[in-house]
Design a protein around this nucleic acid. Structure first.
Lengths: 168, 168
DNA sequence: ATATATTTTCAATAATTTTTGAAATTTCGA
DNA sequence: TCGAAATTTCAAAAATTATTGAAAATATAT
């Protein structure tokens, strides 16, 4: 397979992949393109490569920057802005985990705390099932929260090594 | 907070949560409703509770069954079908991990194997960056695949206990 | 076997999300 | 300070995804 074709396939699959994870196709594709580009690219480069409009490109680049996956690069002598993606995949994964934890897991845990305190008689089967389910989710959620915290702080080599010991 | 209100909030949040994970709102809401119902429910119960049409209800119940999260229950003396959700959250998480691994991670790893074998001179910066990125993703992906396999086989108590040792 | 209840399908419609492109704003060199 | 280049915004349009509801298919009781 030629490089051009391989790149296309990677970008298109990464885009499809993203849609299963609540990330829009274009954002994932821009990320994929930057991941495999040795040099930083401009908005115009990205627009041309992916055949998307200026507005779309701009919005999605900014979103990638918000997620901490892409950064602006200043190249001296150039008027335009350049963009490049973090290439270390372990760092990328940690960054995504960190953001999703903050945006989704933490608010969910807060809600569960509130819901667990529902009024009513625990001997009522309806109440009992509700409280037990919420408690079960909360327990696992809190555990996941702690585990992810440690993972975010971990070095890849340490993390993989430690996991290998557990999951022999 | 009253049970009715708490239930509503849980169902609506679980639905919103689902949309961030590539699961449609209704499917997640039906799952939430069944999670907090002590007794199995019929299609009509679900339609009424969530105010959705028969077709929508039917399709999403079947999808939940495909995911292995809900099962048909036969109640003797009843003509209608009843549905109930697995209440053990650890089992639910394992089931979701298992399905997504099969549907997403494994196909992605297969693709990466193909893409890694791209033609071209490794001294070409374009080729090198591409191959290095793909290899990096593949390496982490394979590791994740193995780790998830072990997790799927694990008992919750063993898993949590082992993790606690690693992430002290 | 027939009637009736129940489930499933799917084309049409509605709702939501994404994309466009042109105008407004900002940046920066001369 | 001015003017051109670059970036950002956002209302309208397009594309995608979800939902409805009625008809078809299936299952069950009598």
């Amino acid at each position: 397979m030629k490089l051009t074709e391989a790149k296309q396939q990677f970008i298109s699959s990464w885009g499809a992949f993203g849609t299963h994870w609540g990330i829009n196709r274009t954002m994932a594709q821009i990320h994929a393109l930057l991941l495999v580009s040795p040099e930083p690219l401009t908005q115009d480069d990205i627009m041309e490569e992916l055949n998307i409009s200026r507005g779309n490109t701009n919005m999605n680049i900014r979103e990638l920057i918000n997620w901490g996956l892409v950064e602006r690069v200043l190249i001296s002598g150039e008027r335009k802005e350049f963009f490049s993606a973090e290439k270390d995949i372990w760092k990328v994964v940690k960054q995504i985990v960190k953001e999703r934890k903050k945006r989704e897991l933490e608010p969910m845990l807060q809600l569960l705390d509130k819901l667990e305190a529902v009024e009513g008689d625990k001997k009522d089967k309806e109440v009992k099932t509700f409280v037990d389910t919420i408690s079960g989710i909360k327990k696992l959620g809190k555990q996941a929260d702690k585990t992810l915290d440690t993972m975010i702080r971990a070095e890849e080599s340490w993390f993989v090594g430690a996991l290998m010991k557990v999951f022999k």
